[in-house]
């Protein structure tokens, strides 16, 4: 028992997460239809956020309208947009999460003006 505890403790580390710069060029325009909507599929958002699900639908046909109606993006302050913050893997929000790359894409799309393109 004592040995296990010591073995566990000796593995204690004190490191901080320093995020890598995402591999996405912020100057290349992202398309809502071909870059953002697939994220809602791939990261499982539509499992709950569907026409038959909860709160609002992120299915292709309703996604943009839902984002507008529920104030999910804040183009003046992209970092605090609910569409980015709530599913961001490094936020403290209790919610299912984007992958790191997809979170970065969503943020860049909002920074580019959150256009329906």
């Amino acid at each position: 028992m004592l040995f296990t505890v010591i073995a566990f403790l000796s593995a204690c580390e004190y490191e901080f997460i320093e995020l890598k710069k995402p591999d996405i060029d912020p100057d290349v325009p992202l398309s809502f239809k071909s870059d953002i909507v697939p994220i809602f599929q791939d990261d499982g958002c539509v499992a709950c956020h569907s026409t038959t699900g909860i709160a609002f639908s992120l299915e292709e046909a309703q996604a943009y309208q839902s984002i507008q109606n529920n104030n999910l993006v804040d183009t003046a302050n992209p970092q605090s947009s609910p569409l980015y913050v709530v599913p961001d893997p490094n936020s403290a929000e209790q919610h299912d999460k984007y992958s790191v790359d997809n979170a970065a894409k969503v943020l860049i799309w909002i920074q580019q003006g959150a256009k329906n393109n």
Binding site: I17, E18, V100
Partner: peptide
Amino acid sequence: REKDVFGKDYKFSNRF
């Protein structure tokens, strides 16, 4: 989770 969540200088013990 995917290792990108742990940022730079990833090693397995980051997960513990």
